[in-house]
Every structure is written in C-alpha cells, then in structure tokens.
C-alpha cells in the first residue's frame, strides 16, 4: 500500500510536468513565426490545463483525495469558481473592448 502511494505521487508529478511541457507545444503552434497572436482557443486551453494541474496538486499532493467530503466539495467548488471567474473576466473583457 505504501509503495503504491509513492508510485501514485510519482505518476501525479509526471502528469503535471507533462502538462507543463504541452504548453511549449501550444505556445509554438499558436504564434505566427515568433509574433504573438491573440487566440481564444489558446487562452481557454491554458486556463483549462492550469486548472487541471491545480486540481491534481490539490487531490494528490495535498491529499484532498483522502479528505472528508466537505473539504473535497469545497476544493472542487473552488476550482469551478476560479474557472468561471477567469473565463468570464476574459470574455466580458473582450465583449467590452
């Protein structure tokens, strides 16, 4: 059981690092020969992936996975609130601009 916990932590680390490296690819493919171009898809993907990492850190590293339901709910709600807040700030900003 203990080795499985250790292994699980390592897998979580590999996943978050892999997601970080995906950013490199997203970033390269988004730009026009080194010139940065505005892109809704990249923005939404960046925020989405960051929140996936956010959730993995909470669940695996911070051990919320084993926490009582209330804390699991609260942290899930936190992720949802952050997602909605960031996306609405971005889209409302674009609509106003």
């Amino acid at each position: 059981m203990e080795t499985s916990a250790k292994k699980r932590l390592l897998v979580a680390w590999v996943v978050v690092v892999a997601i970080t490296v995906i950013y490199l690819w997203i970033d390269r493919s988004a730009d026009d020969r080194g010139v940065l171009v505005s892109s809704v898809a990249v923005t939404v993907a960046a925020i989405g992936l960051a929140l996936v990492k956010f959730r993995i850190i909470l669940g695996e590293f911070m051990d919320v996975r084993h926490a009582p339901r209330a804390l699991r709910r609260i942290t899930d709600l936190l992720v949802v609130v952050i997602a909605m807040a960031l996306l609405s700030a971005y889209f409302v900003g674009r609509a106003v601009a």
Binding site: T43, A46, A50, F54, F61, Y90
Partner: peptide
C-alpha cells in the same frame, strides 16, 4: 508538518495559474 506542507503546495498552486496566465494566454 502537514499544515506547513499545505502552505508550500499553495505557493505551487498559485504559480501554476500565474504561469499559464502570464506566459501562455494569448
């Protein structure tokens, strides 16, 4: 010890968001 490690993870949590928002968002 667990409380302190929670703080350290929180520093990481914030960075993950800051990184995406400053470096990646277009």
């Amino acid at each position: 010890i667990e409380t302190c490690s929670t703080y350290w993870h929180t520093v990481d949590l914030f960075w993950v968001l800051i990184f995406a928002l400053l470096y990646i968002v277009r």
